[in-house]
Structure formats: C-alpha cells, structure tokens
Write a protein that binds this DNA or RNA. Structure first.
Lengths: 64, 64
DNA sequence: ACAAAATGTAAAGTTTTATATACTTTTGTA
DNA sequence: TACAAAAGTATATAAAACTTTACATTTTGT
C-alpha cells in the first residue's frame, strides 16, 4: 500500500509540520504515513484527500 | 462521521457475516462500523468501497 | 562552510481498531 | 407460535494508530 502524500505535499509546497497542522495530526503521523509505517484511519485519509483536492483512492493505493 | 455500509449491504443483499467474509474482517468489525463504534483504516475502507463499487468518500462521510 | 530548517529515527505511552467469544434480541417464515 | 438466521450487545484481549519528546542526520539558503 503506497501513497502519494509526499508528492502532493511537494506539489502544495508544504513541510511535514505544516501539513500536520493543517489536518490536525502530529508531524510524526505524517512522517509515518509517508514512510508507510502505518495505515491511517479513513477519516484522516479523507481529511488529507480533501485538503489536496484529490480522491482517497488516488492518494492511497492498495494494490489488490 | 456516518457511513452507508448498511445501505450498500442491503442493496447487495448480504448479511454482516457475509460481507465480513468478503472483505476479510470479523463480523464484529462490520457491526461496529455500521454502528459508528469506530473509524476503520483506509485500507479497509477502500476494500469495502471497491467491493460495493463506490468511492470511499461516498461510503464514508465525515461532516467537516 | 555555516546555520537553520526539514526530515529521519527511536522509544515510551495512550487511544482506538479489530478479533474472539458468548449471550440476548429481533426478524422472517414455516 | 415456534424455530432459525441475523443483528445487537458486552467483555476481554491483541494489534495497530497516533502522540509526545528528544535527538541525529540531511537538505537548503545565504
């Protein structure tokens, strides 16, 4: 399960800390998600997708 | 955060146990999600959305 | 090259998801 | 009405998300 958080974050020109603040999580959480350390909750995924104006399915891709 | 799992499950004419089996979780997990007891992981949300052929955003609606 | 900012890493602790089991209540139907 | 299947409820436990703190390493701008 890969994701495009780092890519979208770059596109929006934000640091991990800034994104974290925007969506109300810790910087470590952003880091862990980008590094695929874990599998965020659907509400967090939706908040991120909304923030980036993309779909959850685009942002988080589980390969079958 | 409400969701349309029960509705989609009805549309597909499945029991909680059947849906649970389809997406590889326990029946309790389906029940808890339907009852908004918790907030599933994004991979579980994606599996459900795929199974029902809908989007994650449609299936799980977080109100702002 | 230097300093500051950003990212990476790590560990301990809390909260929540998810499982398993078991029992009760509801619902459909013969 | 009686039975079976499905859904609801409860509790204990395991696993994973997420937080906090702290420090090391890498990147970036000047």
């Amino acid at each position: 399960m890969k994701n495009l958080v780092k890519v979208e974050r770059a596109r929006h020109n934000l640091t991990q800390a800034e994104l974290a603040k925007e969506i109300n999580v810790s910087r470590q959480t952003i880091h862990a998600i980008e590094k695929n350390k874990f599998n965020p909750s659907v509400t967090l995924a939706i908040r991120m997708a909304r923030f980036f104006k993309v779909t959850v399915e685009y942002l988080f891709d589980i390969e079958e």
